[in-house]
Design a protein around this nucleic acid. Structure first.
Length: 322
DNA sequence: TCCCAGGATCAAG
DNA sequence: CTTGATCATGGG
């Protein structure tokens, strides 16, 4: 024995997802604008994410074969701590991916259940394998959802990345690279909103984001407590936060807290629901939201995700046709 | 230059 | 309970 402890370097492995029923479209899933966390970085068809496993950071690159059914995931893992065992990291990473990518959700059941819905079923072919992601950090999910209000996906992602680079804890990896995680509420609570604004170009959203960070940092508000409450109770609690309205609250509940019966109603959803389900009658967003929840129940979040993507695609087609 | 982006808020009607 | 103006920022 040399006395040197074994160190784990970067390594690759494959996750066979035979046990998980249903398709996965990795690209659609990650690029669908869900607000639980910033969009994973993409180079060609390889996605990179950094997460905490048992409190230590891991960077991993993800790709998969073209088939959406019977897929397998190619994973390259770069540990943050060389003392962690490779097989242990692989096991934890697999569990993590099943959770984050919603691989337990029975998509085929969803497709079967609403095959007769003339509007929703239209989206199933192109979006087959699109899944709801599950945020890993409640605070991050709330802030990202707040950033998304009256903003484009591209811009809120940019602000979130700038927040990480400016105020996030640094994570080092065994290959010498480093990255920045999402900042803690305690860090943001100490800022004045003007500095946050100038460094992240988040505009007027800086003020409520600092305010909310303070409420969470001093335990005036507990995000984890919402899991034990009914949808209506949880939403009412969230609506008391400055800068959090009905849409942002639903984004947090769906993408952050993993409540699949929440259905955020934005301009796109409101348009397509009133046009295709309510005969073009003009209604309020509140009524659109109620309609979504009552019609799709525990699948409301999924219905919303598919209709949102579909509505955006239609818009793109229209603008191209001009 | 104006309009829009996964809206929230406040004042008026 | 609805409507309108305002709020930063950047892209088209």
């Amino acid at each position: 024995m040399s006395g040197l402890s074994a160190t784990t370097q970067s390594f690759s492995f494959t996750i066979s997802m035979d046990v998980v029923n249903g398709p996965l479209n990795l690209q659609e899933t990650i690029l669908s604008g869900q607000t639980g966390e910033p969009e994973w970085l993409r180079a060609a068809s390889i996605f990179t994410d950094v997460t905490l496993l048992d409190g230590t950071p891991i960077k991993y690159m993800l790709s998969h074969k073209r088939e959406t059914d019977k897929f397998s995931l190619e994973v390259r893992a770069i540990p943050g701590d060389p003392r962690n065992q490779a097989d242990e990291i692989a096991t934890n990473l697999k569990t993590h991916l099943i959770d984050v990518l919603g691989l337990k959700d029975d998509l085929n059941l969803f497709y079967r259940k609403f095959a007769e819905d003339k509007v929703l079923s239209l989206t199933f072919q192109n979006l087959r394998g699109l899944r709801l992601m599950h945020g890993t950090n409640l605070f991050q999910a709330l802030i990202c959802s707040m950033l998304s209000q009256n903003n484009s996906v591209r811009l809120w992602n940019r602000s979130a990345r700038l927040m990480m680079a400016s105020y996030g804890p640094r994570a080092n990896f065994v290959d010498g690279s480093h990255d920045f995680l999402f900042p803690h509420p305690e860090t943001l609570a100490k800022l004045n909103s003007r500095d946050l604004r100038s460094k992240t170009s988040m505009g007027y959203r800086a003020k409520p984001i600092v305010a909310v960070s303070r409420m969470i940092a001093n335990h005036q508000f507990d995000l984890s407590k919402l899991a034990n409450q009914s949808y209506d109770e949880a939403k009412d609690m969230l609506l008391e936060l400055p800068g959090v309205g009905p849409k942002v609250a639903d984004c947090f509940l769906l993408y952050g807290a993993g409540r699949r019966d929440a259905a955020p109603v934005d301009v796109w959803i409101h348009r397509i629901i009133s046009k295709r389900y309510l005969h073009g009658r003009k209604t309020s967003r509140a009524k659109t939201a109620t309609f979504l929840r009552k019609r799709f129940r525990e699948w409301a979040g999924y219905a919303q995700l598919y209709l949102f993507d579909y509505a955006r695609r239609e818009k793109v087609k229209q603008t191209r046709a001009q």
